[in-house]
Write a protein that binds this DNA or RNA. Structure first.
Lengths: 202, 202
DNA sequence: TTTCTGACTTTTTTAGTTTCAAAGTCAAAA
DNA sequence: TTTTGACTTTGAAACTAAAAAAGTCAGAAA
């Protein structure tokens, strides 16, 4: 496929798939379409990935990496805990809007992948909870807040924030969310963050 | 059907349906089964209710009324805001466990009923938010807490609490929840309530 | 007149089948 | 080692038939 090494070709395939998936959804794009985009045969794709699911997972991993990179960067730059919380909400929404068609939930519910996918999903959630824990700990160090168990509060906040989205717009995870709904969820999440921050104040 | 007046017969039918629905689920019980339980013909049922959905809705209304009655009673009896929050959580869970087979969501998603059902559902939610608002206002009156906008905080708490259930056990609303999952959700909801209560303290 | 029912029709659900597009394979070529 | 055209297999959607449940109605009973 006109490229130096195996890993580079894999990356090119992942990028092509990510593009298709982002615009048309993972289940609506065929392996043939991805191959056409890359000017190669479908069989070549199968030389680099055992099946479509493996490619889908690779795409999700790539999107996840950029997400966590952004998240960590914003958390490091913030000078107050509140600012960090607000950046977290903003980054989450950008990601959700950009990659809502990646069909994360679908991989998660696939009977062949549930075990691995759930593990990965929990790991990602824990990683995000870790970042929130860090924000709180930093806040405590700065004397902005007090907390006996930052990890516990972080986990609670994470679930409540995600839950707010689920409760506020009670659609199936597969359905698309409108701009108004996105904005509404964002506003409520900001208020929830303020409740938590206030609760953590001395 | 061996009864004095129309309303009384309606009540008997609703009770019979409620029993069947509670144990076997609304969609799994037939009008014939309800008629058999009441030793009457199916046609009689249709004399009192235009269709099965109308009966289903009547059953849900009845369950809802007992729920709000319990809720209000507990809220009135509580002597502290925290106690009221805890009773609210307990009452919610009792209700959810007892009536989880009533298929509330199904009525809510029916294409012919969406408009009315959503209105009713929102009304019920607002009524519950109203009760929470009252709890907070009472807390403010007692000097336990401070809040500029109790209704706003109540709505936020309500959605976050419901969301916690949705986030923590990511099943379809139709699937059954195990005892362990119920207990886990309850514990997290208690902690969320404490965060809110703490945030509202002077 | 109001309530009730047996016998009926209509609608919905389910289970089985076909069909077709997309997934996936492989022997051979580059 | 990488790529491919030609191939097979698979799974999801589109039909279909049969069964079950919803819903109707003319007339009986109270």
């Amino acid at each position: 496929m006109l490229t130096e090494n195996r890993d580079e070709t894999r990356e090119r395939i992942i990028d092509a798939a990510l593009n298709r998936f982002t615009y048309y959804g993972a289940s609506k794009t065929t392996m043939n379409e991805i191959a056409e985009d890359l000017h190669c045969s479908k069989a070549s794709l199968y030389y680099y990935f055992p099946d479509k699911q493996a490619l889908h997972v690779a795409v999700l991993e790539k999107a996840g990496e950029t997400y966590f990179h952004d998240l960590q960067e914003k958390a490091d730059q913030a000078v107050t805990a509140r600012q960090a919380f607000m950046e977290l909400i903003a980054t989450r929404h950008e990601f959700a809007r950009r990659f809502c068609r990646l069909e994360l939930f679908k991989v998660l519910k696939d009977k062949h992948l549930v075990r691995i996918a759930n593990k990965a999903f929990e790991a990602a959630r824990d990683r995000e909870i870790g970042i929130i824990t860090n924000i709180i700990e930093k806040g405590v160090d700065r004397g902005e807040m007090v907390s006996a168990d930052p990890a516990k509060v972080a986990a609670l906040y994470m679930h409540a924030m995600i839950g707010l989205r689920l409760s506020l717009v009670s659609k199936d995870l597969s359905e698309e969310i409108s701009d108004e709904e996105f904005e509404r969820v964002r506003e409520w999440q900001v208020q929830l963050a303020d409740i938590f921050i206030n609760s953590l104040k001395k």
